[in-house]
């Protein structure tokens, strides 16, 4: 009798928060179906061996990140960029603002330690990626879907369809409430309650994790397929249209809020991501 070898996978962690890894650990089912060959958080191996699948989390922040990335991809058949950091730089993009960048670099000179690169960069600036798995972090269910081929997984087009809150056409807030809105009413759309929720244009798959308990979606999964290959202004307009039809919030107020850091972290992660001029990623490569 021949035993079939389970697929081998490795997890390369660049500069990130390890939240992606913690989420993967929650998807415990892989224990029985995959062979985890490398993941420094849980194994003591120091080099990525030959693997079928390489998951990469975190952005490229230092020369060591870059070196490790280049070495690791050579040994993998399939490369998956997981999490916002690997895909767009994520939260670390806040550090790419010029005034912050200069200060950061001047404070980051150390003897004998990895040198910081001028900017934090997404993984595919340096290597080809076969599959993008957005989310901050992606849920365990999404991790399993990325590992399994073919994935036995169905996502809705956007977060609204997974959220289940009802959109009311006759309740129109006149201002955004920020986070000082008081108790959130159950079952009613957060936009009706004056929250800046961008679930309508954010890709589904997270099962509306934040909006169901009452927090507006900040778009960590990135744009839905309808928007993913377009530039960020198209996305911005699509959100603005939703708010125009559902609220009486002044357009300037909405625009300012949409461009604030918390939103910018996630919202613009695909189209002209990282402020660069790179081509859009194909929607066929995004889970």
């Amino acid at each position: 009798m021949t035993t079939i070898q389970p697929p081998r996978f490795a997890v390369l962690q660049l500069s990130g928060c390890a939240g992606c890894e913690v989420s993967l650990l929650n998807a415990g089912e892989w224990i029985d179906r995959f062979d985890l060959a490398f993941m420094p958080l849980v194994t003591s191996a120091y080099d990525v061996p030959e693997v079928d699948i390489l998951l990469i989390s975190g952005g490229v922040r230092s020369d060591e990140d870059l070196h490790n990335l280049r070495q690791a991809v050579k040994r993998a058949k399939k490369i998956v960029a997981v999490g916002t950091c690997a895909i767009s730089g994520g939260v670390t993009n806040l550090g790419n603002r010029d005034e912050v960048r200069q200060l950061f670099l001047s404070q980051s000179e150390r003897h004998n330690l990895p040198r910081m690169l001028p900017k934090s960069q997404p993984v595919d600036v340096f290597v080809d990626v076969d599959l993008y798995l957005p989310g901050c972090p992606p849920t365990p269910e999404l991790f399993m879907a990325a590992l399994l081929e073919p994935p036995d997984f169905k996502a809705s087009a956007n977060v609204c369809q997974e959220c289940g809150r009802q959109k009311l056409m006759d309740v129109k807030p006149t201002h955004l409430v920020g986070m000082a809105g008081g108790q959130v009413a159950p079952d009613i759309c957060l936009i009706n309650q004056g929250y800046l929720c961008v679930g309508s244009s954010t890709r589904g798959g997270c099962r509306a994790l934040c909006t169901r308990p009452g927090h507006p979606c900040v778009g960590c999964r990135g744009p839905s397929n309808a928007l993913i290959e377009k530039d960020s202004s198209t996305w911005l307009e699509s959100i603005q249209r939703v708010f125009k039809s559902m609220t009486n919030i002044p357009p300037e107020e909405l625009r300012e809020a949409l461009l604030s850091p918390q939103m910018a972290l996630f919202l613009f992660q695909f189209s002209d991501y990282a402020g660069g001029d790179r081509p859009a990623r194909s929607k066929d490569k995004v889970l």
């Binding site: 390890a18 922040r61 404070q107 901050c136 986070m179 918390q262």
Partner: peptide, 26 residues
């Protein structure tokens, strides 16, 4: 490693901190 959160958060609207800073560490 280092990402510079103490610098990155300058200029961030105060009420957004509770969503941004958990990303210091998962």
């Amino acid at each position: 490693e280092k990402r510079g959160f103490n610098l990155m958060v300058t200029g961030v609207p105060a009420d957004q901190m509770p969503v941004i800073v958990p990303r210091i560490c998962g």
